[in-house]
Design a protein around this nucleic acid. Structure first.
Length: 928
DNA sequence: AATCCGACAGGGT
DNA sequence: ACCCTGTCGGATT
């Protein structure tokens, strides 16, 4: 269950008449306990309580219902109960149906609301559902509740008004929801005259069956679009109950006042939502929660998508907030400096070209208001109106609903800041009517002209949007109050790997990259934002920082994207290396992201952030940050089809493309019922990454053409080949191309005498890359790389710390795992010319590593290279190997990985600069 | 003809 | 319900 569902369940429970017998079980059920678990507790089997009327669930909660007036004593008894400690309860809770007291035993936090109000403490109870660590949700239960209630309303309205769910009317529906949210907020914050005016008006004047609710709403909306001076003359006359609503407009209440039809339930949901305290809505996170309401795909994870404030600050602080705060610090009490800073604040534009529901803009705005307030405080002008115009916070968003919400979130943020810093009275005086300017553009950011939406100061650029999309007409008429100002571009644009892009995404990228660079089809969708930002920055001196999938700074994409960004004239000003971007949606694994800041005139020093092992941020300052987000001159590693140094050829393993029919478990192999001789002829051991690393047993059919006829006489084999064929015929082009030789892998490579195997993906926790020596009988699958019949000293290189550092930097990654590549990592690996003596020494080192492993037979590679348990003799063998190899490079051990990487980049640059073509080398690879 | 990638995916605990 | 760690084969070059 997610937070929204739990909220709904406990709210429902609190509304029911109190039933002492039932309460503990209903409470547990509300937090997602299964029927069977409840049944077991009810029967007493799993009830560990030693308190009268108590229910105790292990590792969870001890609940007791007591007679009226004895709640406090009962809680005391629960706290003192030996069973509470023994069962490791996290919470204790006592209630008599009048009041409820509970304690979080881990934190000592207690609550004591009157019974019907306990759902207000959702955040307190969330650890019961295992979502304790989410600070934003715990601190903002109102946002979760609001989301849940609006969602119910939204779903019910669409059910009753199917026409509003159509493409044409979705915009109306979204606009309608935005209006409601505004009204809910306004009635709880004195923006409307009278607390609860909106909800009460609906409740009093509409029919209980909901039949005329839409008419009421239409009238209220109409009122909010009529200035008070015009109220007397408008046609038709406003009814009295609508006349109490102020003129708001601001685009929010202009246009059609149409409202969807309500059912009895929808009306109840509306009132239920209105009864929440919207004053406490937190626009930082409310927007990202609520946007899921209008998104069919996201609705299942309602309230689970939000971008946490600390993560957003990872972008905004280095981009410009740190600098503002430093200037504030520097100003001290100096009048002139304070005024300069205030003026500077007023001319800062923040532009998020993928703004979603406005997270980044809202937080940037709030942070800037905080700084401005500090200035005003030092100058004793605390009631002074803000000089920071909301219209300097611009955004582009593709989806309509989030775009509506973003604008609303900014309006709410502005009001809340005014209340907080200037007081309720001043805040109200300036609030209505809303400005009608529209600074959140709904459109495709990759197709729109950013210069028009966020024009450079002093130029009169008109909207020149691309033919496909229309920019709102009045857009170019909005003046930026940005004369002599600064522009900061930020955000978290969508990521979409090359393979997962739809035609529309591809064509967006094509419009940007085609005719400009090669191989753009392999870029992630997010790359489009970086290119547009780079182009924009060159013209306007803007600074940009985006959250991005880390893959644009790894492997294949680096030479494609960054060569162009650097060519345009931008460089990386600051960066945050890979970290996991928490996404609460269960099963939706968090994605690994980086933050990259680019600028045409980057400020110094360059700042490179990363997370240390304990998860806290560390900052390094350096002269340059390269495209791999490492400190150092801009070196870009291109793929090479043969080794640049004098190394053996490494080949990609054999791809089955078999739907599982060429691959065999041991049981499947035995089930073929082959004779010893047949098995020897047609079946081989096969290794991919997992098999090699974890020592798993796997086999495959391996049929040479000259034995095909014989193989097909064996029924079990013939059937499998037949299945492979049909799988391939139904597959993609790659598969169809080889359908006519379905007894074989895509390729049939193997070693004549020996094979070195390097896994394609392996855990980053290991201190060395796994590499193994296998007999020629073993087949290497596409999930690993192979060196067929290569001298053993090659293995010494792969097993070295130097190589791990190189691979970890220049190859792609799977999240943060090492992902090996022959073309990007092995062929580019810079190695000094090795003497025969060097090779002999390295061969001895490799043998020593193999022997050290052998001593622990049958331990797997995963066990041997577990950083906690790596055996001492193996560690020694690797130390020795590193010692020998590093002496070949620089005559001593390297001090650290930074030094290793610098040397490797240096060698690589030398090797590629000398441009002496290496003769292509063919290894003695078996081929049939 | 040869591989690189995954707003992941699947197994283990 | 996380935590750990690498499948699989299509799309792209």
């Amino acid at each position: 269950m997610n937070a929204v569902e739990i909220e709904a369940a406990i709210s429902d429970l609190a509304l029911l008449p109190f039933d002492g017998q039932e309460f503990p079980f209903a409470f547990l059920a509300a937090f997602g306990n299964k029927e069977t678990a409840i049944k077991r507790l009810r029967s007493g089997n799993n009830n560990l309580s030693d308190v009268p009327g108590g229910v105790l669930q292990r590792n969870n909660i001890h609940i007791a219902v007591c007679k009226a007036g004895s709640v406090s004593e009962t809680l005391k008894a629960l706290r003192a109960s030996p069973a509470t400690a023994k069962a490791k309860a996290k919470f204790i809770l006592a209630t008599d149906g009048q009041t409820l007291e509970a304690e979080d035993l881990a934190t000592g936090e207690t609550i004591a609301p009157v019974y019907p109000d306990f759902p207000n403490y959702l955040g307190f109870f969330l650890p019961l559902a295992g979502i304790a660590t989410i600070k934003e949700i715990k601190d903002n239960p109102v946002d979760v509740r609001a989301t849940g209630r609006l969602n119910k309303l939204y779903v019910e309205l669409l059910r009753e008004n199917p026409d509003w769910a159509t493409e044409e009317r979705r915009a109306d529906m979204n606009h309608f929801m935005a209006r409601l949210i505004f009204c809910f907020f306004a009635e709880d914050t004195d923006i409307f005259n009278g607390e609860g005016l909106f909800t009460q008006t609906i409740e009093q004047w509409s029919e209980r069956d909901g039949s005329n609710t839409h008419q009421l709403l239409a009238e209220i909306f109409r009122a909010m679009n009529i200035k008070s001076g015009d109220r007397g003359i408008c046609e038709p006359r406003l009814p009295n109950w609508a006349n109490g609503f102020p003129y708001v407009n601001g685009g929010l209440f202009s246009g059609s006042t149409d409202a969807p039809r309500f059912t009895r339930m929808a009306r109840t949901y509306l009132i239920h939502a209105g009864n929440l305290n919207w004053k406490e809505i937190n626009p930082d996170i409310f927007g990202s929660m609520i946007q899921a309401v209008a998104d069919d795909e996201e609705r299942g994870a309602l309230g689970m998508h939000y971008t946490s404030v600390p993560n957003i600050l990872k972008v905004l602080n280095p981009l410009f907030l740190d600098d503002l705060r430093a200037q504030l610090e520097d100003a001290g009490q100096n009048e002139r400096k304070l005024l300069n800073l205030r003026k500077r604040l007023a001319h800062i534009r923040v532009f998020d070209p993928a703004c979603g529901s406005g997270n980044f803009l809202v937080i940037a705005y709030k942070q800037m208001r905080e700084i401005e307030f500090e200035i005003n405080r030092r100058r004793n002008e605390t009631h002074r109106g803000s000089d920071i115009p909301l219209t300097n916070f611009r955004g582009i968003e593709l989806r309509e609903f989030p775009a509506e919400i973003a604008r609303l979130a900014l309006i709410i943020a502005e009001y809340q800041c005014d209340v907080r810093y200037r007081g309720q009275k001043d805040a109200l005086a300036d609030f209505l009517p809303l400005s009608k300017e529209n600074w959140i553009i709904c459109g495709n950011a990759l197709r729109l002209d950013w210069l028009s939406i966020c024009p450079p100061t002093g130029t009169g650029v008109k909207v020149t949007a691309d033919d496909l999309f229309q920019t709102p007409l009045d857009q170019s008429e909005i003046d930026f109050e940005n004369e002599g100002g600064e522009t900061y571009i930020c955000g978290n644009p969508p990521y979409l790997g090359s393979r997962d892009q739809k035609d529309e995404h591809k064509s967006d990228l094509k419009a940007l990259f085609d005719k400009r660079i090669q191989n753009w089809k392999s870029l992630d969708y997010v790359a489009g934002w970086f290119l547009k930002a780079a182009d924009y920055s060159i013209k306007t001196q803007a600074f940009t920082a985006f959250v991005t999938t880390n893959s644009i700074c790894q492997g294949l994409q680096v030479p494609i994207l960054w060569t162009e960004i650097f060519r345009v004239g931008c460089s990386i000003e600051f960066a945050h290396t890979s970290f996991r971007w928490a996404n609460l949606a269960s099963h939706n694994a968090g994605v690994t992201v980086a933050i990259v800041g680019i600028a045409a005139q980057p400020r110094n020093p360059r700042r490179l952030f990363s997370l240390d092992t304990s998860g806290s941020t560390v900052e390094r300052q350096c002269m340059h940050i390269n495209a791999y987000l490492a400190s150092g001159e801009s070196v870009i590693i291109d793929k090479a089809s043969h080794p640049l140094s004098a190394l053996s050829e490494m080949t990609f393993g054999n791809t089955p493309i078999d739907g599982g029919y060429l691959l065999l478990s041991r049981d499947e192999r035995d089930a073929l019922g082959l004779t010893q001789e047949q098995q020897h002829r047609f079946v081989r051991r096969i290794l991919g990454s997992a098999e090699f690393i974890r020592g798993l047993e796997r086999y495959c059919l391996w049929i040479n053409d000259q034995h095909l006829a014989e193989a097909l006489t064996i029924d079990a084999i013939a059937q499998r080949v037949h299945h492979v064929r049909s799988v391939r015929l139904n597959g993609g082009k790659t598969a169809r191309d080889i359908a006519e030789r379905s007894h074989q892998f895509q390729r049939m490579f193997f070693g004549l005498n020996s094979t070195l195997i390097v896994p394609g993906v392996s855990s980053e926790s290991r201190p060395y890359l796994p590499v193994g020596y296998e007999t020629s009988e073993t087949v290497i699958s596409n999930l690993a790389f192979a060196l067929y019949d290569a001298p053993l000293w090659n293995m010494a290189l792969i097993a070295s710390r130097l190589h791990l550092v190189w691979i970890g930097t220049v190859c792609g990654k799977l999240e943060t795992r090492y992902r090996y590549s022959n073309t990007l990592g092995w062929n580019t690996f810079p190695v000094p010319l090795l003497t025969e003596q060097n090779k002999a020494d390295l061969t001895a080192c490799a043998e020593a590593i193999l022997l050290a492993r052998e001593a622990h037979f049958p331990a797997t590679i995963a066990e041997l290279y577990d950083p906690e348990k790596m055996p001492a003799n193996l560690r020694h063998a690797h130390e020795r190997n590193d010692e020998v190899l590093e002496r070949i490079y620089i005559g001593r051990r390297f001090k650290n990985d930074t030094e290793r990487l610098e040397k490797l980049f240096e060698l690589y640059t030398q090797m590629t600069a000398s441009a002496v073509a290496q003769p292509p080398k063919k290894s003695s690879r078996g081929k049939k």
